[in-house]
Design a protein around this nucleic acid. Structure first.
Lengths: 217, 217
DNA sequence: ATAATATCCGGACCGCAGTCCGTTTAGCAT
DNA sequence: ATGCTAAACGGACTGCGGTCCGGATATTAT
């Protein structure tokens, strides 16, 4: 099952793939995994990768588009598995459980995922503006938004989903864990608190008087 | 008033500054503002800046440490003003108002700030791990955490403050506004909803049964 | 004025991601 | 087999942020 293919590594729209291209793709993926094993994700450079795989640098970029694209390809299996679990898997993560439970489970899974593939996930975050436009990110966002709506949250679910997503950002999670030594369970617990409050609180109607004017007064 | 100096541009701990150093600093800041005016923040490169200012490239980096450091210096005036307002200014942003009102006002101000200095703020976000360790970010975080505690939020205020901060991330705010054409007022309103729910909701006690196991089951 | 020295200056240099384009080759038609 | 063509190849090249270190200079002591 392919679900939302993060990045296949195959040519963009093409159906057929030339044999040398396929061979080189395998060589590159193998070399990439080796390099990451040896030097860590941050130690993988495109030059070294090309050299290790015995191909030209241009080949690397034609195959994966960018360094972030390569990282996404390396993550695509586990990413697809994650997508499968929260879309079609058993509750509470998959359909069947109450929306709040699904949200809580989603965060817990995501946190575990980031902690497992941390360096890769971080490196896969495209550096550009379109960081939030990669298919996987869009899918997570839509999923959270859908759950918020299902839970009866009426206050701008799109932006609320964005706020919640930002909490699960790999860079932030890794910062909390690696720099501040926050225990992963604490992260999950805080996420549970956060979504619980967002979902099960009535929220306030906008006020008339104060505190919503950006200009100074 | 200097408050928390983001980055003075002066040598790190030193008291005195040699006259040529001071002159070059001014030349560089002037050239930087010109270049940003002409090419935008993303169009400013360190080579062009050095050339425009008529100094060597090494001088640029000794002065500001990095590109992000330069951007912070350019922002330091407005940043200091912002800090002054939320720490010592009039309510509801400053002390005197209820914590929730202060939180709401903080977000609104921050959103306006990011929209005004968007490119700069984005460029000033250090690319490295220590992105969240710059003095200004630490100060915002502590401020939010303090307000959460004052509002009676007992559930891990440190992480909760981190989640709330992430909502105000320049990159995300700019993405919403520039790519998805979200109106700034909508951002502020969503922030208001979010903090209101976080603050005024009792939150749930951890459950015994489900939805907190990261491992698959 | 002169010497001593701590600081600053400048631009060559590095490693990096990403691009370009002349060359090679796989796949196919004949 | 042979020729054709579209696709893939490869590595030199660019522009970038950031570093390094020999040389220049402001400052202070004498």
């Amino acid at each position: 099952m392919s679900l939302i293919p993060i990045r296949s590594g195959s040519p963009l729209g093409g159906e057929a793939e030339r044999s040398d291209a396929a061979r080189n793709r395998e060589l590159l993926l193998k070399a990439a995994r080796e390099l990451i094993e040896e030097c860590g994700a941050d130690g993988l450079t495109m030059d070294r990768l090309a050299e290790r795989a015995g191909v030209g640098k241009g080949t690397v970029f034609r195959r994966f588009g960018s360094r972030a694209g390569l990282m996404m390809t390396l993550l695509s299996d586990s990413e697809a598995a994650f997508q499968g679990r929260f879309m079609f898997g058993p509750p509470p993560l998959g359909p069947g459980a109450p929306p709040l439970d699904r949200l809580v489970a989603f965060g817990a899974e995501r946190i575990a995922y980031v902690l497992e593939f941390g360096e890769l996930a971080r490196a896969a975050d495209a550096s550009a503006y379109n960081r939030y436009d990669v298919p996987a990110a869009v899918l997570w966002h839509r999923h959270i938004e859908m759950l918020l709506r299902a839970a009866g949250v009426t206050a701008d679910p799109w932006l609320m989903a964005m706020s919640l997503s930002s909490t699960l950002d790999p860079e932030r999670l890794l910062y909390a864990v690696r720099v501040h030594h926050v225990a992963p369970e604490r992260l999950a617990e805080s996420w549970r608190e956060l979504v619980t409050r967002v979902v099960s609180c009535p929220g306030g109607a906008p006020r008339q008087d104060s505190a919503s004017r950006p200009d100074e007064g």
